Simulated assay, not measured.
Amino acid sequence: MYRHLLVPIDNTDLSTVTTGQAVEFARSLGARITFFHAQAGDASSLQGKAESRARELLTKAESAARAQGIPCSAVTAVSDAPYSAIVSTARDKACDLIFMASHGRRSAIDVMPGAQTLQVLAGTEIPVLVTTSAGSPAAAQAIGILQDEHRSLAAVLHAWLFMLASAQTQGSAADAAWMKAMLHYIKAFPLTLHHPKEQKYLFDKLRERTSALNAELDELERQHERDERLIADLASLVDQYAAGSAAVGDVEAAVSAYAKFTWEHMGREEGVILPAAQRYLTEEDWREIDSAFAENKDPHFDADTDVEFLRLYARIVDLAASSKQ
């Protein structure tokens, strides 16, 4: 059976869905993943932005895998022929399966693979699993946004844990100001925007369509309430650490416990709720959910992103890169 997957990702929303599918597939097999991103060779001033975006995409993908305990790594390449770079990387990394999205168009009978996917299929002896997003375009878009927001939070928590572990190993102080910035992100985005919209649009829509998930939804809503209490406790502990009345080990233990709680919560949403939503929700439901979440503007590398969040994310991505050296 397959033991090492190469998963190409790009800048499209479809890659977020593909990452989730690949992580679940690798978990079922006990396989590891190498995520791959190819960026065009461009010497212009836009190259720096492209590199930053690539680091962000790969950081989120790795965070999704690590949250499920899946060994993973990430590779980038500069290439104007992505299909060739995908094939070469799969060979170089001794991958035994390429797991990629179709990026094609839907016909009357099936999904037709896009040009890059077809060229990969034609150009490699390595097996290729071409995946598609189930359901309507609105469903795929909405699920992609939801999963991307999960990846953002996962990236923050992984960077926080790495920073604390490094401080423990080196016997140095952790950056309290940065920890407060991370807490600000969690309060301002997942707690203030993501959770309420999940309940109002996704959870409530599901309750309207079926009662089969009521117990699961009740538990997830209780976890949302608990999330707020845990973050309040974490904020208090960080304040104590900054004042010198708490040790870095205390903070690390608390962040580890919060991360474990978060991984399990997101796993239930992605493993139970989203598949059920694809069965029960209508096209109109998905359009409404997509519209609501598209307004969130999760703080990553977009032109209209708050400068404070941009700086935080840049540091998170750099820290994640350092953790693999």
Rank of each mutant, 00 (worst) to 15 (best):
E252K: 10
V272I: 15
A167Q: 06
D175A: 07
D218A: 11
D233W: 08
A31S: 15
V272C: 04
P196Y: 06
N11S: 14
V75D: 12
G123T: 01
A188Y: 00
V7K: 02
A235L: 06
H37P: 05
S172Y: 01
G69C: 04
F309K: 01
V17W: 05
L191P: 00
T19F: 01
S133G: 14
V87D: 02
Q325C: 12
P190R: 06
K60G: 13
R32G: 06
G20S: 11
V130T: 10
S256C: 07
V111A: 00
A247K: 12
R55P: 00
K205A: 13
A77S: 10
E264R: 13
D204A: 15
S107Q: 00
H224K: 09
F35P: 15
E283H: 08
T124Y: 06
A38P: 11
I33C: 06
G271H: 08
S28N: 11
K324T: 15
H194Y: 04
A314Q: 14
G135T: 04
H300S: 07
W286P: 06
G144Y: 06
L193Q: 07
A22K: 05
Y280L: 02
S107T: 14
A246N: 10
D239A: 15
F293P: 00
L161V: 10
M182C: 15
L14P: 04
I186H: 13
V17N: 14
T59Q: 10
A243Y: 09
L146S: 02
A177M: 01
A115M: 08
D285N: 13
L312G: 00
L230G: 01
S45C: 01
L220E: 07
L5R: 07
Y2V: 10
R315V: 00
R91T: 11
S166R: 11
H300P: 00
K297F: 09
G48M: 02
A54C: 08
G69N: 07
A215K: 11
A108Q: 11
L191E: 15
F309S: 07
T117P: 04
A173H: 11
L312F: 04
L14G: 02
R3V: 08
Y241F: 15
I33V: 09
L319G: 15
K187F: 14
E216N: 12
T18G: 01
G123W: 03
V238W: 10
A155G: 11
A115V: 11
C95I: 01
K187W: 09
K197V: 03
A243M: 13
A122M: 10
F162S: 10
A176H: 02
H224Y: 03
F203L: 07
S44R: 06
A320H: 15
V87C: 07
M163Y: 02
A320Q: 15
L153F: 01
F25M: 08
D148K: 12
V317G: 03
V78I: 11
P127H: 01
Y313H: 13
A165G: 11
L312K: 11
Q119L: 08
A54N: 05
L5Y: 04
A314K: 13
K205E: 12
R32H: 00
M163F: 04
M1I: 12
M163D: 10
E295A: 13
L5M: 08
L206R: 03
K324S: 14
E24D: 14
S211C: 00
Q141H: 14
V307Q: 08
S166H: 09
N214L: 03
A122E: 13
S256Q: 14
I98T: 03
T12M: 07
K93C: 04
L213N: 09
A22Y: 06
D92R: 13
